[in-house]
């Protein structure tokens, strides 16, 4: 019975669902590690989702039937660019203008929510446009492994890249000077400043990077997972991503576990209902949210948040 529910395709689907959470939450991890909370992830995701879809649509040659590698590259590039702009704007507000981070994030979210829809209506007249997004790439040899091959190695490039980011994030944060600076700035900005680290510059970097990754999270929806844009299509995923950073205690690996847990349970609860098992739909839909909390009750480590989180820094004279 359980074997019927947890099939390779369910697990593969869970991994796909985890992708946008991973991008967004890893980006948020950089920001929070340096002491900046950005609640505006959802808004940036929506901007990335729309603009990348627009680029793929725009650069796909007329009459093309399959996917177009060049157009997809443009889609990613545009998403990165838009993420860069949104991230920089966030940094200006949160770092230079030292805004209260709880509110500025909600402002950025609302701006992105509105602006992405406005652009959608202006550019496409609000008509649903579909594109040929990233195709599945069967990794040689690996994809032939029974079961595991189907689960892990028949996904598309944006999925692989998201998971590749996990060790990269760990490495950058823990094994590089840059990571050391980020952690120092998030833990004790005064001391970091005294050591000659520019707190502002480090935070500009992390917040902008967070914007780029949030934008890619949006792209991983619109040009890889569903290949279409609609207003508010992220449906709260950006906020879940922020929550997952807390789940993972600001560690790349923990964030990945959180994203996987949430998404696998989500895929599983869909499977439960597809199988016609008699649970109220609403209770099944609750499952990922409930289990994420319960998992944390049992697995939580006593790791304190970065001491300077949400606290703006101003150099003393």
């Amino acid at each position: 019975m359980i074997g019927d529910l947890i099939t390779a395709s369910v697990l593969a689907s869970g991994i796909r669902l985890a992708t946008p959470y991973l991008y967004a939450a890893l980006g948020e991890t950089f920001g929070q590690r340096s002491g900046v909370l950005n609640l505006g992830v959802e808004g940036v995701m929506l901007m990335g989702a729309f603009t990348s879809l627009w680029a793929v649509h725009e650069f796909t040659p007329a009459g093309a039937t399959g996917y177009d590698a060049g157009a997809l590259a443009m889609g990613v590039l545009v998403a990165i660019l838009v993420g860069l702009i949104m991230g920089l704007a966030t940094a200006v507000i949160n770092v230079t203008l030292q805004a209260e981070q709880g509110i500025s994030g909600i402002g950025i979210y609302l701006f992105g929510l509105g602006m992405s829809d406005l652009l959608f209506q202006k550019v496409f007249g609000g008509n649903v446009v579909t594109v040929n997004g990233f195709p599945k790439v069967y990794l040689p040899v690996l994809s032939d492994i029974p079961v595991l091959g189907e689960i892990f190695f028949r996904q598309n490039l944006l999925v692989y890249f998201a998971f590749a980011l996990v060790p990269v994030t760990w490495f950058v944060l823990n094994k590089t000077t840059l990571g050391l600076k980020i952690r120092a700035v998030g833990q004790n900005p005064e001391a970091a400043d005294a050591m000659g680290i520019s707190v502002a510059r480090v935070r500009y970097f992390t917040v902008t990077l967070g914007g780029v990754l949030a934008s890619l999270a949006g792209a991983s929806l619109s040009i890889s997972l569903v290949n279409v844009f609609q207003q508010n299509m992220t449906a709260g995923q950006g906020f879940i991503a922020v929550a997952l950073v807390y789940f993972g205690s600001w560690r790349a690996r923990g964030v990945m576990f959180g994203a996987l847990l949430f998404s696998l349970v989500n895929a599983l609860q869909l499977q439960v209902r597809t199988k016609g098992i008699d649970v109220p739909d609403e209770y099944a839909a609750m499952a990922p949210y409930v289990l994420t909390i319960i998992a944390l009750v049992f697995a939580s480590q006593r790791i304190d948040q970065p001491a300077a989180l949400t606290k703006p820094f101003e150099r003393g004279e």
Binding site: G43, I93, A99, I103, S104, I106, G107, I108, Y109, L110, F111, G112, L113, G114, M115, D117, L118
Partner: peptide, 9 residues
């Protein structure tokens, strides 16, 4: 929606 976001920011 975008306008309210701008005002907040």
């Amino acid at each position: 929606t975008a306008l309210i976001g701008l005002v907040i920011v």
